[in-house]
Amino acid sequence: MPDLITHTLVSHLLRRPLDWRSASRPWQGLRPLFYLGVLLPDILTRPFYIIFPVTKTWTIFLHTPAGALLACLLLTRLLREDLRRSAFFWIAGGALTHFALDALQKQVTGNNFWLFPFSWKNFSLPLLRPEDFMALIPLFLGLTLVLEAAFFVFRRRTPFTNR
């Protein structure tokens, strides 16, 4: 899978335009949960099997959409009741962008079991190696800066709160 900086930047580039017209909505306060969702599939698996490789086969499920969605539901149970629905969509949205980006990676063995537990079919469109993603970090960072600059200019002209 790509590194988590790539995951974060690409997901931010995909999500950020949504703020253009809806930055003042109440559910926007939960935006950090989107980034939790982006990192969640790897948080649930990588630390465990990198430190304890014997746990790898136990954690593979947690790096599937089904596992991530169950983990999202579990996390939202820890939030105040009126926030849970919005929080679920933020976390799940982040997790789905994670899987979409993972699918673009070339791998010797599969890692995109989108239909688990019904199938072990590996869904991928192998375009880039992990090191290619790392080489693209400056590009993603540059695009993020351009996008944020556009937001900064736009905000100065028309405050979000009035939109």
């Binding site: 988590l4 900086i5 306060g29 939790l36 070339k106 791998q107 190696r129 992990p130 790392m134």
Partner: peptide, 28 residues
């Protein structure tokens, strides 16, 4: 066979967003 070039670098780089996210969540 594929040599996973830069895997260690990838792991260390991946710690950065994690270390940024935790204080952000604690702040929000």
């Amino acid at each position: 066979l594929n040599v996973a070039e830069g895997r260690r670098r990838k792991i260390y780089l991946s710690l950065i967003p994690l270390l940024l996210l935790l204080p952000l969540l604690a702040w929000r």
